[in-house]
């Protein structure tokens, strides 16, 4: 009985995971090797043809390139900004506690609503953002329907939504950096900039690494709702990233085989990201 006990704790959860996550993932893998015939529901084994076709499809290659740019730009901006803000908020300026709660608010807004709000604010005719832009720079921009502004708009909304999460983590970890180190560096005559980038930033590098990974996941996958609401992948496919393309192929065009192949490519990317994360985390343990 004692020996069976661990299994009793594990089995219920594991069964659910297998049924509703691993099994569908396996079916997606199988589906990626098949082609559905145009008539009826016969499926034909085609090997890696779905994958080969994807890599020859200029639209897909564009989506991959766009994803790469979108992910790296929004993650870089978010990490940089959130670190700076977190640093400011840990300087002991009065009022930061309540302020922190406020800044956290966008994180609690669901992606579809975030997209809706920004769509409204970026409205080219009556939107607020354009009002300020016209006042400040004298330009009027169709944010969501023209190149390259649709891309900027997406970055804008993504950073707005993602930054609070990173900021909270940075605040917690900067507060953990011992005050002695900061004091010592002040006495050494290090100026603020040096102190921040040469001393504090490296000390919180494990959290930075964790956040970069989390942000990559968010921008790769959760960006779906924001893209859908704000640009629908437009104008003319300009802001179609990998997840949105997957959605279009799977649901709008009903191309099951290619869509499953796209899923597999995303799995593979995520697996690589996870492995990189853990080999880094392991090294951190040795380091301590």
């Amino acid at each position: 009985m004692r020996k069976l006990y661990p299994y009793l704790l594990l089995i219920p959860t594991f069964v659910i995971i297998i049924m509703f996550i691993y099994y569908p993932a396996g079916s997606a893998l199988k589906l990626s090797l098949y082609k559905t015939s145009p008539f009826g529901n016969r499926t034909i084994y085609v090997g890696l043809r779905n994958f080969r076709q994807l890599f020859e499809d200029p639209e897909y290659l564009y989506a991959v390139r766009f994803t790469l740019i979108y992910v790296s730009v929004s993650v870089a901006i978010t990490i940089f900004m959130s670190f700076i803000i977190a640093y400011m908020l840990t300087r002991g300026v009065p009022g930061t506690r309540i302020y922190r709660t406020f800044l956290f608010a966008p994180y609690a807004v669901s992606p579809a609503i975030a997209g809706t709000l920004w769509t409204f604010l970026l409205n080219p005719v009556v939107g607020h953002v354009n009002y300020f832009f016209a006042k400040l720079f004298g330009i009027q921009v169709a944010w969501l329907t023209s190149k390259p502004y649709a891309f900027y708009a997406l970055i804008f909304a993504t950073v707005w939504k993602m930054l609070p999460f990173d900021m909270i983590f940075y605040i917690a970890s900067i507060q953990d950096v011992s005050l002695d180190i900061i004091e010592a560096s002040t006495l050494d005559g290090a100026n603020t900039m040096t102190r921040v980038w040469r001393i504090i930033f490296p000390l919180v590098s494990p959290i930075t690494f964790y956040l970069v990974i989390m942000n990559i996941v968010t921008t790769m996958f959760s960006s779906f709702a924001i893209v859908d609401v704000m640009t629908s992948g437009g104008p003319g496919g300009y802001t179609t990233n990998m997840i949105y393309k997957l959605y279009l192929d799977a649901f709008t065009f009903q191309k099951r085989g290619p869509a499953a192949a796209e899923s597999m490519i995303m799995f593979a990317i995520m697996l690589v990201v996870t492995i990189i994360y853990f080999s880094f985390a392991e090294r951190k343990v040795h380091y301590q």
């Binding site: 020996k3 006990y5 661990p6 299994y7 704790l9 594990l10 594991f14 995971i17 509703f20 996550i21 691993y22 099994y23 569908p24 993932a25 079916s27 997606a28 589906l31 996941v217 790769m220 996958f221 779906f224 997840i243 997957l246 959605y247 799977a250 099951r256 869509a259 499953a260 796209e262 899923s263 597999m264 995303m266 799995f267 995520m270 697996l271 990201v273 996870t274 492995i275 853990f278």
Partner: peptide, 28 residues
Amino acid sequence: FTFKGRGLLVSIIVALMIIPFETIAVPL
């Protein structure tokens, strides 16, 4: 707990930690 297959189970869970919903939506 220590039991048979624990290490394997942990690595499966960790390696497949992030399976985005959109990729399994159709089979599901």
